[in-house]
Nucleic acid binder design. Structure first.
Length: 546
RNA sequence: GGCCUUGUGGUCAAGCGGUUAAGACGGCGCCCUCUCACGGCGCAAUCCCGGGUUCGAUUCCCGGCAAGGUCACCA
């Protein structure tokens, strides 16, 4: 068979030679040991935690080593393409503070552009043509029905499914048959002529998983689809070679197709890059655990964290604790260090899939929020409210001074005695709501109505805005004593039967009356922030509504 | 089913032949206290199973078992 002629028929025209491409995309001029990594999402419009997980790894490995990380868009499947998806990826990663050096919509070093695979058609075809000319690839005219029938037969006979060996019908088509099919205008794909033998095992060192054993590939995989676009496997080999990736970081689901990639790189005459296959985030689902799924788990979407108002750094910190087992300890020791200083290592990555733990994220989030200064917290909440808040919530920020006072005095923001009442911006808005709106739904008073009104009346009668905290609380105690409640907690504890309740119950009446909630920060401070008029109005209102 | 990977408390995990088997989250209890939150103290809870190797296995070997991944003209 004349493979050269066949190649010309299949992919007519002049293509640059491998040497041309080697010259066009030269090795990167980087210091020794510098790693080149990449994030290569497909533009489906859905950016998830898994992408962030990979992206942080890519970014850390590249930048820790003085190398670069780039963004490549794997848009070879036009069925899945969504407009604006690339911007969404970039926006989301930027929000979580992952910076790329070059890539799609980012620019940077143009030498290795374009970063959209659909714009790289020529180079893929040039190499496919070369493979055909060498007899390492061939046209396959099997239809999807043919393939389905084949799979069915193999399944029935309990054989390995796929296009390989004796089942690779088109592999041994005669020259005559091929041209007959071509003349008839039959659509075709190009397949790799695999030389592998599954009896052979390959020892392979994975940067994350360590030493693994894989089975040699014998599948004649499709490398060029009938629309002339390469499959992932082929594009991966070409792009990661010519974009000079040194370490390919990807999900462990790719480990299964590593043998294909090993054979492809060899067939192409490219040195194999290093690989790091990371585990995927799991979720408990009844008895078993499974991969986080975008249909079932809203928390997989990065958008979820923005909407809920998680502080972006918190998400990043949590990802880092999952990514490197020694990160948490390091962070405890260096709470004020730049996250970039953490000595991130691929080999410290977990080999098994971690269950995504929202409780843990929430804890991290509270702590991160508690680190924010007054201005930072104000800006964070304001930005969130402007994007996701209700119209009422947006108005909270109209009186910036009041908001800052609330944050500082009641939440301890900016001070050293921090409260950790909320994990997200949306919770924060809910939490401080009673400062800006009259409480609507009241919690139940534990105290009976008559005592409650007596307490309210007594308080209203002697409340003075000018009182300091001590004087204020002394009055509360007085009121307690006068109404049959223990003024001192220890008295009440020593002899609970002697009283209607304690000063705690008296405080609760006042607290619910002014805030609508049984649990709040210091009541005196709240009243100071609300102002005398508003405080009185609320207490009055609570009395009348009983 | 074939192939690959992984198995330490409920979760994330440290550990690398001898440890009272770290730590964090969560849970529970106590203290602090006008409530809550914070903070402090404490408690419960773990080496998948079976064989070896060894004076000694969570650690090494073999075999099970379980879980996950993958078997497309999707990435």
């Amino acid at each position: 068979m004349n493979y050269k002629l066949l190649a010309e028929r299949l992919l007519p025209g002049e293509y640059p030679t491998p040497e041309d491409y080697e010259a066009k995309y030269p090795p990167r001029d980087l210091p020794k040991g510098a790693e080149v990594t990449r994030l290569a999402p497909s533009p489906t419009g859905f950016i998830h935690l898994g992408n962030l997980f990979s992206a942080i790894t890519d970014e850390r490995i590249a930048h820790r080593s003085g190398g670069i990380v780039y963004l490549r868009i794997e848009d070879t499947d036009l069925k899945r393409k969504v407009d604006g998806a690339v911007e969404a990826v970039i926006g989301a990663l930027k929000y979580f503070d992952v910076k790329f050096d070059e890539g799609a919509e980012i620019g940077g070093n143009e030498t290795y552009a374009p970063w959209y695979q659909r714009q790289r058609a020529e180079i893929y075809r040039a190499f496919v043509k070369k493979l055909i000319a060498e007899g390492r690839a061939y046209p396959c005219f099997c239809t999807e029905d043919d393939l389905a029938a084949l799979r069915e037969e193999q399944t029935k006979n309990k054989e390995i499914t796929g296009y390989y060996g004796k089942y690779a019908k088109c592999r041994n088509l005669s020259e005559e048959e091929i041209y007959k099919n071509l003349d008839a205008g039959k659509p075709f794909v190009i397949r790799l002529r695999s030389l592998g033998n599954p009896e052979n095992k390959i020892k392979f060192h994975d940067e994350i998983k360590g030493d693994v054993t894989v089975t040699e590939n014998d599948q004649d995989v499709v490398i060029l689809k009938s629309d002339g676009i390469p499959t992932y496997h082929f594009a991966h080999a070409i792009d990661d070679h010519f974009m000079r990736t040194t370490i390919v970081i990807r999900g462990e689901d790719w480990l299964a197709s590593l043998p294909i990639h090993i054979e492809l790189f060899a067939a192409l005459g490219f040195p194999l890059p290093r690989y790091g296959h990371h585990c995927s985030l799991m979720k408990q689902d009844g008895e078993t655990r499974r991969k986080l799924s975008k249909r079932k788990d809203p928390e997989l979407s990065l958008e979820f964290y923005r909407k809920e108002g998680y502080f972006p750094r918190a998400v990043k910190v949590y990802m880092l604790t999952l990514l490197n087992s020694n990160f948490e300890e390091w962070y405890l020791k260096h709470p004020d260090a730049d996250l970039a200083e953490f000595p991130f290592k691929a080999e410290k990555m977990s080999k098994s899939g971690a269950l995504f733990d929202l409780d843990k994220l929430n804890d991290v989030s509270k702590n991160e929020l508690a680190r924010l200064g007054e201005e930072e917290m104000f800006a964070f909440l304001k930005d969130w409210a402007e994007e996701f808040g209700t119209d009422t919530q947006k108005k909270y920020f109209a009186d910036a001074e009041k908001m800052k006072r609330t944050l500082a005095l009641c939440m301890g923001v900016g001070g050293k005695k921090r409260r950790k009442d909320f994990t997200t911006a949306s919770q924060a808005m809910e939490f401080i709501r009673y400062f800006f709106e009259r409480p609507a739904a009241r919690e139940q008073y534990r105290t009976d109505a008559a005592s409650k009104n007596a307490i309210l009346r007594a308080f209203l009668a002697r409340y003075r805005y000018e009182d300091d905290a001590q004087a204020w609380f002394a009055k509360v105690k007085e009121i307690a004593a006068e109404n049959g409640f223990a003024a001192e907690m220890r008295d009440y504890k020593a002899n609970p039967e002697a009283y209607k309740g304690s000063v705690a119950d008296v405080a609760e009446v006042l607290r619910i009356a002014t805030t609508g909630q049984a649990n709040t920060p210091d009541l005196y401070t709240i009243m100071q922030i609300l102002g005398e008029e508003e405080t009185r109005a609320r207490l009055q209102c609570a009395m009348e509504n009983s």
